[in-house]
Amino acid sequence: MRALLMALAIASTLAAVPARAEKADSTKPMNVEADALRYDDLNQTSVFTGNVVVTKGTIIIRGAKINVKQDPEGYQFGVVTAAPGQRAFFRQKREGVDEWIEGEGETIEYDGKADRVKFIGRAEMRRYRGTELSDETSGAVITYNNTTEQFNVDGNPGGATPSNPGGRVRATIGPKPGASAPAAPAAPATKLRQSSTLGGEKR
């Protein structure tokens, strides 16, 4: 009976406060929508299946299944898996700037306590400035740390795919905002001299 009440309590969070761009996403409640839920009170785990959509502060996660475990401090660790042949999706706003981190992978691991996300299998991560794509990278595994704003990318030379025959890391890095081509050399100064005409006529 207690487990059923806890499951209903979790389900009730689906109508919680909408996501906002706030600094500590890791401390925000995790809201989940799915076709089915299996809750284990003893192990403090929840398994959501079927068209899963997760929101947590500015974070949005989508996949076929997510297994969520909560520690005694209230932090969540989630493992998201995609449907066969597809990839799960993750998106989060960066604090203080109009930038978003977005990524995909066959499996996504989210660690709320460490504020870290890992994309595994056909991994791809993008950074948007506003709506414009700025940077893009792909590899076998990508680990992004939101606290330090650093990420690591591992390739898989032995696991080439049709989209990446070499299995190597690929990256496209855009220029920083405000960057422009070097200014052209200034034209030589022209010495002004007095004219004896005004409007084409003698003064």
Rank of each mutant, 00 (worst) to 15 (best):
A34V: 11
L133H: 09
R2W: 13
T49E: 12
K118N: 04
D25I: 03
T143G: 05
R122Y: 01
G96E: 09
S134Y: 04
P165H: 02
R170G: 14
I61F: 06
L5R: 03
V53F: 08
G167V: 10
G74W: 05
R170V: 11
A15S: 07
N164R: 03
L192N: 06
T81V: 15
T197R: 11
D115I: 04
T107P: 04
V54S: 11
P18V: 09
P72S: 14
A19E: 00
N146H: 13
A19P: 13
E132G: 03
A9Y: 13
E149L: 14
P188L: 09
T143Q: 11
R87M: 02
I10G: 06
T45Y: 00
D98K: 12
K69G: 13
E33G: 09
A160W: 03
P188E: 06
I66M: 15
R126S: 09
E95R: 09
Q92T: 03
R193W: 03
L5S: 05
N156V: 01
G166L: 10
V141A: 12
G139L: 02
P157S: 00
R126T: 01
A15V: 00
V169I: 15
E102M: 13
S26F: 13
E201P: 00
E124V: 12
A21G: 02
I60S: 10
Y39G: 07
W100D: 15
P185R: 11
G78E: 07
N164I: 00
T27G: 05
P177M: 03
A7F: 05
N67L: 14
A64T: 07
D115A: 15
T197S: 08
D71F: 07
E136P: 01
R126Y: 02
I66R: 08
F90W: 14
I61H: 01
G50Y: 08
K191S: 05
I120N: 04
G103K: 04
I142H: 08
T81A: 10
P157H: 01
P162C: 01
E33R: 12
Q150K: 14
R87F: 05
D98Y: 07
V54E: 08
D71E: 04
T190C: 02
V53G: 01
G159R: 03
D25C: 07
R126M: 05
S134D: 15
L8C: 03
R127A: 06
A9M: 13
Y128C: 05
D71Q: 06
S163V: 09
I108E: 13
G199I: 01
R203F: 04
T147W: 00
G139K: 03
E104R: 15
G112S: 15
I66C: 08
